[in-house]
Amino acid sequence: MNRFSKWTALAGVGLLSVNIAHAQIVKIDGSSTVYPITEAVAEEFQKAKKNAIKVTVGISGTGGGFKKFCRGETDISDASRPISKKEMEACKEAGIQYYEMPVAFDALTVVINPKNDFVKSMTPAELKKMWEPAATGKVMSWKDVNPAFPDVPLKLFAPGADSGTFDYFTEAINGKSKASRTDFTASEDDNVLVQGVSRDKGGLAYFGFAYYVENQKKLKAVPIFNGKEAVLPSPQTVENGTYAPLSRPIFIYVNAKSLEKPEVKAFVEYYMKHSPELVREVKYVPLPAKAYTLNMEHVAKKKIGTVYGGEEAIGVKIDELMAREAKY
């Protein structure tokens, strides 16, 4: 045998001996909104376990994450909205059962340029006028939204159609998920939205609270009228439910079969135990403490499926939601 064929043989043997399921790995993918929380938990969890259990977190967006989840490629899916009907069916077809676990609140924050001094607050109706599909090409000036506003060109920025944030906002404001005007600047990168609004006096955008917190110097948040009063987003107003209808729970979905594996179980338990502090650290609003214990009780009781039945629930309190019957 010459040198060349020896090496080929060695490489062949080496490839055959590749062991795919070698290490204990917890695979997570999904929403970029939930990512900071999951990343924080993963980081602390790996430290606590001295790296004996490995965790990977990807960002494919809520929809992209569910696609992988329902093919059984991931153990846990990050989601900034509840699982949709289509996704429920896909999971069902593949025989993937799952637990739905709310992990935090996010306040969708409507922001404007700091130089914009004519908007003091907005009502959901005004937002609808601005964002509904019929507004495309028609509502082009602030004056068109409310005659009391001056004639300043309206420049709109929003997350792209793959994001759960877009889904939730359109559902909460326009009444139908994904129904939106189409002539706005879309970007999956929220920093692009921040830049856009901070450079344009007539700019307006919506995105997660964390991006507003980090960019308070460049942006102004708009108080949203909740039926009684106009309320600014903040941890307090989200927790006491007055910042409505734009505060929403965000979730992780856990593959029920994966949860039987000790490493996934250990990770989820760690997630629920340490969420309150870690969620606060990454600038989200933690759920009431009992929600996290309730999540684990649901696992003990095998409460598989979603309490949403494939639809968004706008303005429902978290404890009411969690008490609902789950559907699969």
Binding site: G14, N19, I20, I25, Y35, A42, T56, V57, G58
Partner: peptide, 28 residues
């Protein structure tokens, strides 16, 4: 093809701790 964003470990070293010579090629 699905590279990850958060990954806080390295692929297994060949022939260490029971890993095969080419296990690292299958690592995330």
């Amino acid at each position: 093809i699905g590279a990850l964003t958060f990954i806080a470990f390295l692929p297994p070293l060949p022939l260490v701790e029971g890993a095969g010579l080419f296990d690292w090629v299958m690592s995330p």
